[in-house]
Nucleic acid binder design. Structure first.
Length: 473
DNA sequence: ATGTCC
């Protein structure tokens, strides 16, 4: 593997073997070293470069690490004309994503009430692997959610129009409920408004640092303000969609599977019935994930209204981490229609892009970047150079450093919770094992990931938040 | 990530 540094934080793996394009790794030397240590992250990036129709280069972002077939922290743009879709390039948790809610509360208003707040949120939002959601839905409701996402939530009284106006894609992609397997629907019908497990969380935070006052103001953020970050996805429904379609792709293209550098790359040509069905099901699962985060937003509104007597809980923005979308990008000076696979990657469109909500058009799309539990999180703005460098994308988080198993061996939930509590952070979790798996030490340094994104100009620093209380699965 | 095995 020939890896050369092109400019600061930009490295290229030259095309070789079956690669149709090179691989670009956007990382500092320390982050690159972590990827090398992990072993196969960079190899996975180059495997992605073999996809038919892939444009320019396979992208590995600063938080890149090992995933199913494709690296997590990866972007692959394939031509709509002659390209393919690969479920591994989107991931099992379809439209896993993050939203941030801003309140009119200051840290001083919440201080001393953290335990009551975390208890209330924990009671309202089912978390962990169990069933049940904040919003009761039946089978017909689910069909509506799969078809139109946040629009169904609004029409059913679970969302304000302003929520849709401040959500990526207005919370709706062209979902096809008929393409969603029956098993997936069964799993999803009772999970609208449930957190899940693993790295998913619901966290009350306070804004501690502003780096770009004008953009922070446009996002409605100010120092000392209390905000709420929700990180969750499409739960069992999205997982089942991914799993069943990977099986369907494998059965449809057995020869392809055998010819691939990694069978987990399995793909289908765009336009093929199985590819179109997958896209419809994947978009439907994305709609479900938005409905899920929206339902939890309603739970937050209930808790905040009850405890602090305010209904000022507004959506700043909602980003997808795991999705593929049709976009127009410039390749060799020409506009090309591409299917952009983002897996563990955040869209980061710059100021002026027509897909940035009107309210933020002049400053760029908000990019919500969670750190690990108990450290801090960031709000960035889509950067000027993201279209040129990364198909309008940046990192999605700190990136895992230690495996879940390794983390469980090294950390103890009780110790961690006690230490965080002494720092003023209240963590309430369904499972101690999850707390250990999500220990800050199991993650890379989020500050370094953000520093590189900012330095590259793909996502620039706007604000930093510290945790106040955190609900985990 | 995930009714951590249909």
């Amino acid at each position: 593997m020939h890896l050369t540094e092109l400019t600061e934080n930009v490295h290229e793996i030259a095309r070789e073997g079956e690669m149709r394009v090179p691989t670009r790794v956007f990382a500092s030397e320390p982050l690159l070293e972590k990827m090398r240590e992990e072993g196969r992250t960079l190899e996975q990036g180059s495997n992605v470069a073999t996809l038919p129709g892939i444009q320019k280069y396979s992208v590995v972002l600063p938080d890149g690490h090992l995933g199913y077939g494709f690296p997590i922290g990866g972007v692959a743009a394939v031509a709509m004309d002659g390209g393919v879709v690969s479920p591994g390039g989107i991931g099992f948790d379809i439209n896993c994503g993050v939203r941030v809610l801003r309140t009119d509360l200051d840290y001083d208003d919440v201080r001393g009430h953290e335990q009551a707040l975390v208890d209330r949120l924990y009671d309202l939002v089912p978390c962990g692997l169990g069933r049940g959601g904040y919003v009761r839905t039946d089978r017909d409701d689910l069909e509506g959610i799969l078809a139109v996402g946040m629009e169904w939530m609004r029409d059913a009284g679970h969302a304000r129009q302003a929520d849709l106006d401040h959500c990526e894609e207005s919370g709706r992609l062209p979902g096809d409920p008929d393409a969603v397997p029956e098993d997936a629907k069964r799993r999803g019908v009772n999970q609208v408004g449930s957190l899940g497990s693993g790295n998913h969380f619901l966290e009350v935070q306070r804004v501690t640092d502003l780096y770009d006052a004008a953009t922070a103001d446009a996002f409605g953020l100010r120092e000392g303000q209390v905000v709420v970050m929700i990180h969750s996805g499409s739960r069992g429904l999205g997982h089942q969609v991914c799993q069943e379609y990977i099986r369907r792709f494998e059965r449809t293209y057995p020869d392809l599977v055998d010819s691939l550098p990694d069978r987990q790359l399995v793909y289908a040509p765009l336009g093929d019935p199985v590819a179109e069905d997958y896209l419809g099901a994947m978009y439907a699962a994305a709609n479900f994930a938005w409905a899920n985060r929206q339902a939890m937003t309603q739970a937050v509104r209930e808790a905040v209204a009850d405890l602090f007597d305010t209904d000022a809980v507004d959506l700043v923005y909602d980003v997808c981490h795991n999705v593929a979308k049709e976009e127009t990008h410039t390749v060799d000076g020409e506009d090309v229609e591409v299917l952009v696979h983002r897996k563990g990657a955040t869209r980061a469109f710059p100021a002026g892009h027509p897909d940035v909500p009107e309210a933020y058009r002049d400053v760029g799309q908000p990019v919500l970047l969670p750190g690990s539990m108990g450290t801090h999180s960031y709000v960035l703005a889509g950067g000027e150079r993201s279209m040129e460098l990364t198909f309008g994308s940046t990192a999605h988080g700190a990136g895992r450093l230690k495996s879940r198993t390794q983390a469980k061996r090294e950390y103890t939930a009780g110790d961690l919770q006690q230490r965080l509590r002494s720092e003023g952070v209240y963590v309430k979790a369904r499972s101690g094992a999850t707390v250990a798996e999500e220990a800050p030490g199991a993650y890379k340094d989020v500050d370094e990931v953000v520093r590189v994104s900012d330095a590259l100009g793909i996502g620039t620093k706007v604000a930093r938040m510290r945790p106040v209380c955190n609900v985990k699965g």
